[in-house]
């Protein structure tokens, strides 16, 4: 049973990978997923008994499930939007504004991608935690007994951590795209009378759109399934679908319920990613090649 629960979690964490057309991974993923789906439909014990959707109606009726669902969507959407904006600005500065160390910074971004996510949480705790630097500074300066920063265990804290951690995932493809954008194009635009704002909107942004889309899609799916950051940062304060699966399976021993949430999580990932791609093709329709 423990094994199967773990299989369910692994399958869920791999949800982000079903989407790129990597057949081999799909195969590795589809079998555990089938097990999870079967278990979610067998409320009277794994494998045995008649199939029933009773577990689904039970789980859907719980307030904690609805909270987790909203948290998951809200945090993932917010973090994606945040990383897109922040990633675009940072990548633009690194690529086009010459400053000493910009190369070193772009190297560091590569390294950053390899960091484990809980490191971010720890760093944020040091800075914004109840006994962290920011609050320490506040209490030192004002003499108050506690500081004003107490958001780490709220969805905002999780959002901040995810934006921090996932921004490099957007920057990486953007930097590659910016490397392709010729400085000559920016200069041509300027000589034609365009101010920097217009150049960014009409030249840089449209040419970076595919990279931005790729980065955003990746971050969206990773955020929907993020476990470590939510567990560390949100602690008991924030539940998302992945942490709910963990709670049900490991803490409550409710394997069927865990499987139900896992199935919902997978379906949500697939649906949101599909919606995202659809939005992209819609907005990118005028760019279609009429060859």
């Amino acid at each position: 049973m423990t094994l199967r629960a773990r299989a369910g979690r692994t399958g869920m964490m791999r949800a982000g990978m079903i989407l790129p057309p990597v057949l081999l991974l799909a195969l590795l993923f589809l079998y555990p997923l089938a097990l999870v789906v079967r278990d979610s439909l067998s409320p009277d014990g794994a494998g045995g008994g008649a199939l029933s959707t009773r577990a689904y109606s039970d789980v859907f009726g719980e307030a904690s499930f609805r909270d987790a669902l909203l948290n998951t969507i809200g945090i993932a959407a917010g973090a994606t939007a945040g990383t897109l904006v922040l990633g675009f600005v940072l990548a633009f500065v690194v690529a086009f504004v010459p400053f000493p160390g910009s190369r070193a910074l772009s190297r560091f971004i590569d390294v950053f991608l390899a960091f484990p996510s809980f490191l971010i949480t720890l760093a944020l705790l040091f800075v914004y935690g109840t006994v962290g630097m920011a609050n320490g500074l506040w209490t030192d300066v004002t003499g108050a007994s506690s500081g004003p920063f107490d958001f780490l265990h709220t969805p905002w804290g999780v959002l901040l951590a995810e934006v921090t951690y996932f921004t490099p995932f957007v920057m990486r493809p953007l930097l590659a795209a910016f490397a392709q954008t010729e400085t000559a194009q920016l200069e041509a635009a300027a000589s034609l009378g365009a101010r920097p704002g217009r150049i960014v909107r009409q030249v840089v942004l449209p040419e970076a759109l595919p990279a931005l889309a790729a980065g955003g899609g990746l971050v969206l799916v990773l955020c929907l399934n993020e476990f470590g950051i939510v567990l560390f940062t949100g602690a008991k304060g924030v539940t998302t679908l992945p942490t709910l699966v963990y709670g049900k399976a490991i803490l409550d021993g409710d394997y069927t319920g865990a499987c139900v949430v896992a199935v919902v999580n997978v379906a949500l990932s697939a649906a949101l990613y599909g919606l995202y791609r659809m939005l992209l093709t819609r907005t990118g329709a005028h760019r279609a090649r009429p060859v």
Binding site: E182, A184, Q185, E187, A188, V203, P206, E207
Partner: peptide, 9 residues
């Protein structure tokens, strides 16, 4: 300029 620098999109 030599490399045209047209806006490709």
């Amino acid at each position: 300029v030599q490399q045209y620098a047209l806006f490709p999109h």
